[in-house]
Lab assay of single mutants.
Amino acid sequence: AQFIESYVCRMCSRGDEDDKLLLCDGCDDNYHIFCLLPPLPEIPKGVWRCPKCVM
């Protein structure tokens, strides 16, 4: 059997509050909206890229 790795935030390495986890459309990394600098108030609509992919 294969275990699917749960999504974890690249900043805090936690997978809780998954309703606040953002998936980068560039590299598929995950980030909590409140772990980003600056934090986001809510999940953005449409395409989102993490700080690494925006640079």
Rank of each mutant, 00 (worst) to 15 (best):
K20D: 01
I33Q: 14
L36Q: 03
I4V: 12
M55P: 15
E5C: 13
G46Q: 10
P38E: 07
C50A: 01
C27N: 01
M11N: 13
E17G: 12
P41E: 05
C35G: 00
E42K: 03
D18P: 15
Y31Q: 02
K52G: 12
P38K: 05
D16S: 14
V47K: 14
S13R: 12
N30I: 15
L36W: 06
P51I: 07
P39S: 13
D29L: 09
L23H: 05
C53I: 00
E42C: 06
C35V: 00
C27S: 01
K20A: 10
S13I: 12
H32F: 02
D25S: 11
C9R: 01
D18M: 14
V54K: 12
C12I: 00
E5D: 13
C12K: 04
P39Y: 03
R10T: 13
S13F: 07
L37K: 15
D19C: 12
V54P: 04
Y7K: 14
G15H: 04
C9Q: 02
D25F: 04
D25H: 07
C27R: 01
K20W: 05
H32G: 00
L36S: 08
L23Q: 10
C50G: 00
V8D: 05
N30Q: 14
M55T: 07
Y7R: 14
C27M: 03
I4Q: 15
L37H: 12
K20T: 14
L23W: 06
F34C: 11
L23E: 10
S6L: 06
P41F: 06
P51H: 12
K45T: 12
W48N: 01
H32S: 00
D25V: 12
G26K: 14
K52M: 03
P39T: 03
L21N: 04
E42F: 06
C12G: 02
G46M: 06
V47A: 06
F3W: 02
L36G: 02
F34H: 09
E42N: 11
E17P: 10
F3K: 12
V47T: 09
P41I: 09
S13M: 07
E17H: 06
P38R: 09
Y31W: 04
I4N: 05
L23S: 14
M55L: 08
I4L: 05
C53G: 01
F3N: 15
P38F: 03
F3Q: 07
D16W: 05
C35E: 01
P51V: 08
D28V: 03
L36R: 02
K20L: 10
D16Y: 09
Y7G: 14
Y7C: 14
C12Y: 01
E5K: 13
P51D: 12
L23D: 13
K52V: 09
C9N: 00
K45D: 15
L22S: 03
C50R: 00
C9Y: 00
F34K: 15
L37G: 09
V8E: 06
N30W: 09
L36C: 15
D16P: 12
Y7P: 10
L21R: 07
I43E: 11
Y31C: 03
E42M: 04
E42H: 04
L21G: 02
C50H: 01
F34E: 12
K52C: 05
L21I: 11
N30P: 10
G26M: 07
I33R: 04
N30H: 07
V8L: 06
L37I: 11
P41K: 10
W48S: 01
Q2S: 14
C12T: 02
C35P: 02
V8P: 09
P39V: 09
H32K: 00
H32W: 01
L23R: 15
L23G: 10
K20M: 03
D25I: 07
N30F: 10
P38C: 07
E17K: 09
V54S: 06
K52Y: 05
D16A: 11
F3P: 08
R14S: 15
I43S: 10
F3V: 13
C9F: 02
V54G: 06
W48K: 02
F34Y: 15
P41S: 13
I4A: 07
I4R: 05
I43C: 05
I43W: 07
D29F: 09
C50I: 02
G46D: 13
E17V: 15
G46H: 14
K52T: 12
D16I: 14
N30L: 06
L22K: 05
R49Y: 05
D29H: 15
D28L: 05
D28I: 15
F3C: 07
D18Q: 15
A1I: 14
R49K: 15
E5I: 05
C53E: 00
F3R: 13
D28K: 03
V47L: 04
C27A: 00
D29V: 06
E5P: 04
N30A: 15
K20H: 09
F34G: 13
G15W: 07
V8H: 09
S13Q: 07
F34R: 13
E5A: 05
Y31V: 09
K52Q: 10
I4W: 05
Y7I: 12
C12E: 01
P38N: 13
D29A: 13
E42I: 12
S6F: 08
G26E: 07
E42A: 11
C53D: 01
G46V: 09
Q2F: 03
D19H: 11
E17F: 11
G46T: 06
W48Y: 03
C53T: 00
S6G: 11
A1D: 12
D16K: 06
D16C: 09
D28C: 04
P39Q: 05
V47N: 11
E42G: 08
G15M: 08
P41H: 05
Y31M: 10
L21A: 04
V54L: 07
P41Y: 06
H32L: 01
C12F: 02
S6A: 10
E42S: 06
V54Q: 03
V54I: 12
E17M: 09
L36D: 00
I33K: 04
E17W: 07
R10C: 09
P39I: 10
L21F: 10
I43A: 05
P41T: 10
G46C: 03
N30S: 10
Y7L: 11
R49F: 04
K45M: 03
C9T: 02
I4E: 08
E5V: 03
C53S: 01
P39W: 02
H32N: 02
V47P: 06
P41W: 04
G15N: 06
H32R: 02
P39N: 11
S13N: 07
D18I: 14
N30V: 14
R49I: 07
C27H: 00
K52N: 11
D16T: 07
L36T: 08
D28S: 14
Q2W: 11
D25T: 12
W48V: 01
W48E: 01
V54D: 03
F3Y: 11
A1L: 05
D16L: 07
F3M: 14
R49P: 00
E42Q: 13
L23T: 14
N30D: 01
A1T: 02
V8M: 11
V47F: 13
V47W: 03
D28F: 06
N30G: 13
I4M: 14
R49H: 09
V54E: 04
P38Y: 04
G26P: 01
L23I: 08
D19Q: 12
K45Y: 03
P38Q: 15
P41C: 07
C50Q: 02
